[in-house]
C-alpha cells in the first residue's frame, strides 16, 4: 500500500448527497495479491478519435470562452509513466453550463461546445487536451453554493485498483476553499494535488494559456495496458 493516502471519506456531511449514498459498512478488505494485480477493464471498445482531444474543434465554429491547453503525465505510484491508457474528460462550457440534459442552470448553452473529450496517453504517459476554461456554476448543496471551475477526469490505468475518476481545479480560484467536494479531502496537501498549475511552457503565445496537471494512479506494477 502507499505511504500517503489523501482519499476523501465516503461520508462527508458538508456534501449533502453523501448522506444517503455512503455505505455504512466498512468495505471488505481483500488481500493485496488477490486483487491489486488483477488486470483492469479492457477499454478498447470505447472509441478514441484524434479530434476527441480538441474540444474546440468538434462543431462548425469555435466555442466562446478562454481557450486553454491542459496537459500532464499519468504516472503510477513508482513515478513510472502509464502508457496508452484512456483519459476521458468532461466539463461545463465557459458560462458554467453543461450540455447534459440534467443541468438546468440558467446560463446559455454554446452550440459550438459539447465539453467531452478522450485521448490515450503517449509513450511517456503524456495526455493533452485543447478546450475552453469552464465557468463556475451554482448547485443546490446549500444556500449560495457555487462549484469552482473544474474539469472532470476519468482514467483506467493497468489494474482494477488504478481506476480513477476525479476533478481538476484551476489555480487561484477563490471558490476553492468554499467547495465541500474538494474540501472532503481531509489533508490540504491532497487537495493541492487536484489543482493544476499555470505553465508557460505549455502556453502557446498569442493563442492559448497552458495548464499542467500530472496524475498518479494507484498501484506500482508496470503491466502493459490494453489499448
Amino acid at each position: 500500500m502507499n505511504d500517503v493516502d489523501y482519499e476523501p471519506p465516503y461520508l462527508h456531511p458538508d456534501y449533502r448527497s453523501t448522506e444517503l449514498r455512503a455505505p455504512k459498512h466498512e468495505p471488505v478488505r481483500l488481500p493485496d495479491e488477490w486483487f491489486h494485480d488483477a488486470p483492469g477493464p479492457v477499454f478498447g471498445r470505447i472509441p478514441v478519435r484524434d479530434e476527441d482531444a480538441d474540444l474546440t474543434r468538434q462543431h462548425r465554429g469555435e466555442p466562446l470562452g478562454e481557450r486553454i491547453i491542459i496537459t500532464g503525465r499519468v504516472l503510477d505510484s513508482d513515478a513510472q509513466p502509464v502508457r496508452k491508457t484512456l483519459v476521458e474528460v468532461w466539463q461545463a462550457n465557459a458560462a458554467g453550463r453543461y450540455v447534459d440534459s440534467a443541468d438546468d442552470h440558467a446560463a446559455p448553452l454554446d452550440p459550438n461546445f459539447t465539453g467531452a473529450g478522450r485521448a490515450l496517453t503517449d509513450q511517456d504517459g503524456f495526455y493533452r487536451f485543447v478546450t475552453v476554461k469552464p465557468g463556475a456554476y451554482p448547485w443546490r448543496n446549500h444556500l449560495n453554493a457555487w462549484r469552482p471551475a473544474h474539469v472532470h477526469f476519468s482514467l483506467f490505468g493497468p489494474s482494477l485498483a488504478s481506476r480513477l475518476v476525479t476533478q481538476m481545479y484551476f489555480p487561484g480560484d477563490p471558490l476553492i476553499p468554499l467547495d465541500p467536494i474538494l474540501s472532503s479531502i481531509p489533508d490540504p496537501r491532497g487537495r493541492e494535488l487536484l489543482i493544476a498549475r499555470l505553465d508557460l511552457d505549455t502556453t502557446v503565445p498569442e493563442w492559448a494559456l497552458g495548464y499542467r496537471w500530472d496524475i498518479v494512479l494507484r498501484g506500482s506494477r508496470a503491466t502493459p495496458t490494453e489499448a
Binding site: 482519499e7 505510484s77 513515478a79 474528460v89 440534459s101 440534467a102 475518476v165 494535488l193 498518479v216
Partner: peptide, 23 residues
Amino acid sequence: MTAPTPSQTVGPFFGFALPFAND
C-alpha cells in the same frame, strides 16, 4: 512512493460524456 491523485465524485452531469455506442 508517490501519493495517488485523490478521487472526486463523478457528479450528476456525465451522461453526455461517458456513454458510448453499445456500451
